[in-house]
């Protein structure tokens, strides 16, 4: 048996495979030399290229950040320093709640992602590593050059807080920093979405029924709640993953309850009316909506296992 395996047929197979590999490599070389590959940033990558690049990025960042340990950085002065550095280095490409990128950040491929949900996808160490060392072929520079590790951790501290910043709160932070004698009240550290969604009050089963009886379904598509219509307002698919409510409030249990109880109190011109629900009923609806999609912690774990 083993004598036959080491005989000629095996050699043919190996030679054939080598030949095919060489031919393939030569064909690729000719293809590259032809210049037909579209390198334009404006045109999206094809799906297979996107998938490979994203996988490479995720694995590389996870591997290289594996031994980094975050120092304590949940102090107001660290976050203030982080905000200043963020505005100096990051906002021009990544923007901020309600603040657009500048021209330099437009038209990059890959597109610099908004960072409101960075902590729902990456660990603190991974955000630090990416900020400190940058990403090859992604337009992301290394910000450790000319900076100290403590300054990079301050940026991470601010990016963590972005997860719970409404456009309004962000503006307040910026103006408080620009003018320290400003009397606006700023809360430098708060509960992030990732923390707030770890425990949601209310009963999802009752909430699902209430969403039907209050007629929410006639304006919104809601997975799991059947009915006609649903095209007046936005679909509520993957609701737990949504960052903002009506573009104003950060999507957390308390804010969502407030919104459901009286939307015009928050956005006077909204088409969504107050429904006359009780606080307990609103909490139940909130509980059901957060069963849609992945909550921040689940999202991070899902990212990890990918």
């Amino acid at each position: 048996m083993s004598a036959r395996l080491t005989g000629k047929p095996v050699l043919y197979v190996i030679a054939g495979a080598l030949g095919a590999a060489l031919l393939g490599a030569a064909a690729m070389g000719i293809f590259i030399a032809s210049g037909r590959y579209d390198i334009a940033a404006m045109h999206p990558h094809t799906q297979p290229v996107r998938t490979i690049l994203k996988f490479l990025q995720r694995r590389s960042i996870a591997f290289h950040a594996r031994n980094l340990v975050a120092p304590r950085f949940d102090q107001p002065e660290v976050i203030q320093r982080g905000l200043a550095l963020y505005r100096e280095h990051c906002v021009s490409c990544h923007g901020a709640p309600g603040e657009g990128r500048q021209r330099v950040g437009v038209g990059l491929n890959p597109n610099p992602p908004p960072l409101e949900q960075a902590i729902e996808r990456w660990s603190d160490a991974e955000i630090y590593w990416t900020t400190a060392f940058g990403l090859k072929m992604a337009g992301m520079p290394s910000f450790l050059l000319g900076r100290t590790p403590a300054e990079i951790w301050a940026i991470v501290a601010f990016v963590r807080q972005m997860n719970r910043l409404s456009p309004e709160e962000y503006r307040r932070m910026v103006s408080a920093r620009a003018n320290p004698s400003d009397t606006v009240r700023v809360q430098w550290i708060g509960k992030t979405r990732a923390e707030a969604l770890a425990r949601v009050p209310g009963d999802p089963a009752r909430g699902k029924e209430l969403l039907r009886t209050f007629g929410c379904r006639s304006c919104h598509l809601i997975p799991g709640v059947p009915g006609p219509g649903g095209n007046v307002g936005p679909p509520l698919t993957r609701w737990a993953e949504r960052q903002f409510i009506s573009g104003r409030l950060v999507n957390m249990p308390d804010a969502l309850r407030t919104w459901i109880l009286n939307p015009p109190a928050i956005d006077p011109h909204t088409a969504m009316p107050a429904l006359g629900a009780t606080v307990a009923q609103a909490d139940d609806m909130v509980a059901y909506l957060y069963t849609l999609g992945a909550r921040p912690r689940e999202r991070q774990q899902k990212n990890r296992s990918r």
Binding site: P110, N231, P235, R238, F244
Partner: peptide
């Protein structure tokens, strides 16, 4: 749309049938 899987704002699926922009 290539790479369009963001969850910061609302999904734009079925946008042709949506009645309002920004709720107003």
């Amino acid at each position: 749309v290539s790479g369009a899987s963001g969850t910061i704002g609302p999904p734009l699926a079925g946008y042709a049938r949506r009645a309002y922009i920004a709720g107003k």
